[in-house]
Design a protein around this nucleic acid. Structure first.
Lengths: 138, 138
DNA sequence: TTAAGGTCTGTAGTTACTACAGGTGCAAGA
DNA sequence: TCTTGCACCTGTAGTAACTACAGACCTTAA
């Protein structure tokens, strides 16, 4: 008992707290196979060691950066294969970076359009609204 | 028969084609209650008049601008109530506009971070990658 | 000992659709 | 008139990435 604690094994709740994610997220990642099935206590409670903790941290960082689970799988399979090259990783990152840039461009266009529509409208108690008209009108 | 055609009633497929959305989307909008239950032919095929066509166009435009279905419901309930004020519409639009601006800011920060990480990496055949290290390292 | 709270499993809900399966309707050519 | 092929019908399941239960079991502190 004391030994397992000394080895730095922690349960799901502690892991979640440590890395600031939810309990269920961890189980979900296990379910979809990006986190390994962990050791268990005799009664079935999950136990995570240092390696799993680092893996989860990696996953959460990538998600925070907006990588999809799909992209994460690719990254993880490289990491797991242990013979990835810098070029492969760079390529994936560049692809993703481009999709981010595109999303920014789209949102900016959208912002512009909305501002233009919205500027027509003075607000207040007027019963007709140029915003609605701009959207509803033919 | 000829009469219904002359009245401009069209079926679901024609409506979808006209407005460039999918068949199923229309049924979905009906299911969640933002499109009304339309007239039917005797055999059960949906028939849409001018009013429904305009409503769907409004919905599709709003979605294109990124309004969520939730926000759309608010807009539609104003339009339906027929006594909305310009101020109410303006408020909703401003709220949404702010969320768009925030999203842009977040994505830009992300872009910046990714570029910084990615610049460390030369690509090529090197077996270790600073991108992975930046993400995986403590 | 007991009560509170942590953990377990499985399943349903979220958003905004999309994609079937399996069954009818309809229009046009032979 | 028949038939062929597309349009349309319904209901349900799948998508992404989780979140939120319910109902049971485990653990720990008072």
């Amino acid at each position: 008992m004391t030994i397992t604690v000394m080895r730095g094994l922690i349960k799901r709740g502690a892991l979640a707290k440590q890395l600031g994610c939810s309990l269920e997220t961890i189980r979900y990642y296990e379910g979809i196979g990006i986190m390994p099935e962990p050791m268990r206590t005799q009664s079935g409670h999950r136990l995570y060691g240092r390696e799993e903790q680092e893996r989860l941290r990696f996953i959460l960082r990538c998600r925070e950066l907006g990588f999809s689970i799909q992209e994460l799988r690719r990254l993880l399979s490289m990491v797991d294969s242990d013979h990835f090259t810098c070029g492969e990783v760079h390529e994936l990152t560049q692809e993703y970076l481009q999709s981010v840039s595109e999303k920014i461009a789209d949102l900016r266009k959208l912002e512009h359009t909305l501002k233009a529509i919205s500027m027509e409208c003075a607000g207040g108690d007027a019963p007709d609204c140029p915003i609605i008209e701009a959207l509803y009108g033919s």
